[in-house]
Every structure is written in structure tokens, then in C-alpha cells.
Design a protein around this nucleic acid. Structure first.
Length: 215
DNA sequence: ATCCCGAGGG
DNA sequence: CCCTCTGGAT
């Protein structure tokens, strides 16, 4: 459920978009293949860590075909510094194999096909559609989930239900808002020790985590 | 100790 | 809904 008045929602939206006008992912990529792989690796792992891994990974496996025929232990070795490397290595290769077998080597360009790929869930599919295809979708990661709850934009327990609340609240510019909320959550509305003294939404915040600002 | 742009399975 | 996977930074 959304706990905010329409006027407040519009104000939050306005400030987010003003503060992060050209926001986009901090993952480094050169094409759809690289973006998909990078987002798959980013589960429970910082973007910074993913960006340390991907240059080696993409040099060794520059496309779907080479990844589909990769040795799993070699992939594990390259990506092991990011979490869940067993699952991720297995899923990366299976994903590439399915793209070759079912999609003729071409990564599908819509979310309903993307989520059929091993290791690609709702969040990953939406991030790819938002970042690469500029689709009007919301994706709820750990940052968006936390920010949405602190701002009273959702009280839902799951990312899926939170996404529904955010779509209902904002309706338009969802992709730009997603990107802005990620950066806002990463650098200002952080999980631990949120930087309330730097927050441009301070006056609108009713979170229990809100900190008093000494003036 | 908690958190990082989650997914799959039960 | 729950659980597991699981390294690195703080």
C-alpha cells in the first residue's frame, strides 16, 4: 500500500529527477550481452566489485557463443570474488546455451523472454529493459526497496509487491525514477548511517531511521 | 556484525 | 511466505 498523498508523491518524483537528471547504471558494459552478464553478476554484490571482474570475463568470453562453451571451473575462477559464484557461473553458461539454442544466439529483447533465461529474474530483466531499452518499468533492488519503504511509498514485504506500489504511485518516468532511487539509496539514503544531513527529501521523510540534523 | 542493483527452490 | 547460495567491504 502507498502511504503518501498524490502531491507528496509528485514532489518526491520531481526532486529525484532534478537531483539525478541523467542517472544510469554504474555497471560498465559495451553491448546487451555485457549488460546482461554484469547485471546477473551484481546480485548481492557491489557494482564496483562487478566492474573489477567483467574486463577479464569479457576478454575471455567476448560473446554468447564463447560463454556457452566455457569451462565452468574457469568461469568460477574469474568471478569468484563476487558472491554466489557457483550459482552464477552455472547460470551464466546455461543462459548462454539457452540463448544459442532457443533464440538463435540473439539475446531476446523483451522482459517476458528474458526471465525465461537461467539466472535472470524479474529484477534483472527489468534493469536490462530500463537501462538498455529505456522502457517505462520499475525494478526493485535492495536500494529501491529500502528507499521506497523509508519514504512511505510502500509497506509491501516483497520486491514484487513493492514494484506494484511504485508503479501505482509514480505511473510515468519509471525508468528514470528507478535509476535515481538506486543512486539516492547508494549514496544518501544508505542502509547504515543514512546521510540525512545531505538529503534533499529530508522534510518529506517520516522514516524511523530518520536522523535529527543539528543546525 | 551488516550490507551489496537476487534467483531458484521448497 | 521461507531458505540457501556466499566473497568482500565496512
Amino acid at each position: 500500500m502507498v502511504l503518501r498523498k498524490p502531491k507528496e508523491i509528485e514532489e518526491i518524483k520531481k526532486r529525484l529527477l532534478e537531483h539525478y537528471p541523467q542517472a544510469h547504471t554504474e555497471l560498465k558494459y559495451k553491448n546487451l550481452y555485457q549488460l546482461l552478464v554484469a547485471v546477473m553478476l551484481s546480485a548481492q554484490c557491489t557494482d564496483k566489485r562487478v566492474n573489477m571482474i567483467t574486463p577479464t570475463l569479457f576478454a575471455r568470453y567476448p560473446d554468447i557463443h564463447t560463454l556457452a562453451h566455457a569451462d565452468i571451473d574457469e568461469v568460477k575462477e574469474i568471478i569468484k570474488s563476487c558472491s554466489f559464484f557457483n550459482n552464477k557461473a552455472k547460470n551464466l553458461i546455461k543462459m548462454a546455451q539457452m540463448v544459442e539454442e532457443k533464440y538463435g544466439g540473439k539475446i531476446p529483447e523483451d522482459e517476458k523472454e528474458l526471465v525465461k533465461l537461467p539466472g535472470v529474474g524479474q529484477k534483472t530483466a527489468h534493469v536490462v529493459m530500463i537501462e538498455y531499452f529505456k522502457k517505462n518499468l520499475m525494478a526493485v533492488d535492495t536500494h529501491v526497496f529500502r528507499v521506497a519503504h523509508r519514504l512511505g511509498l510502500s509497506d509491501a514485504k516483497t520486491p514484487q509487491a513493492t514494484e506494484k506500489d511504485l508503479v501505482e504511485a509514480f505511473k510515468t518516468d519509471l525508468n528514470a525514477i528507478h535509476q535515481a532511487m538506486v543512486l539516492f539509496g547508494r549514496y544518501i539514503c544508505t542502509a547504515k548511517n543514512p546521510k540525512c544531513d545531505q538529503c534533499f527529501l529530508y522534510d518529506l521523510c517520516e522514516s524511523e531511521d530518520k536522523r535529527e540534523i543539528k543546525k
